[in-house]
């Protein structure tokens, strides 16, 4: 049953986001702390558990994988509702900060992946 997969995904999301909210409250932060990340770990653990017990049906797979494949269309819709106009007209300070930030972080990623590769046997 496809709905089992969708429901499993929904339950993992609800628990994860709920825990993220509670974590935020406990830390006195007005934001969700890692809720989606927790949900991802839950879903992945659920798949491993189901597979180990031979209960990973085609329906469960279809229900979750459908939403995973809808990811890119959702990202396109997300892009279409950004406040691009105000970001583009924010003036030089906004542009300089954003560009420098991305450049610096990309440089660090390059550095880390170079060092990281050197460590590998």
């Amino acid at each position: 049953m496809t709905i089992y997969g969708v429901a499993l995904l929904a339950i993992c999301t609800l628990i994860g986001v709920g825990l993220g909210d509670l974590l935020g409250m406990a830390l006195h932060v007005k934001a969700n702390v890692g809720g989606v990340g927790i949900a991802m770990v839950l879903l992945n653990s659920a798949r491993i558990w189901l597979a180990r017990n031979g209960a990973l049906s085609a329906g469960i797979k279809l229900g979750t994988e459908f939403w995973a494949t809808m990811y890119i269309p959702i990202v396109v819709a997300m892009a279409a509702q950004q406040n691009v106009l105000s970001a583009a007209s924010g003036g030089p300070m906004v542009i300089i900060t954003a560009v420098l930030t991305v450049a610096a972080c990309a440089a660090v990623v390059a550095l880390i992946s170079k060092i990281d590769k050197g460590d590998r046997p």
Partner: peptide
């Protein structure tokens, strides 16, 4: 409707779904 499809709700739902094959 694009606001709903690309909003945080469905975005997070789909991100979680991508973890299935991690």
């Amino acid at each position: 409707g694009i606001g709903l499809l690309g909003g945080a709700l469905l975005r997070d739902f789909a991100i979680v779904a991508t973890a299935f094959e991690v």
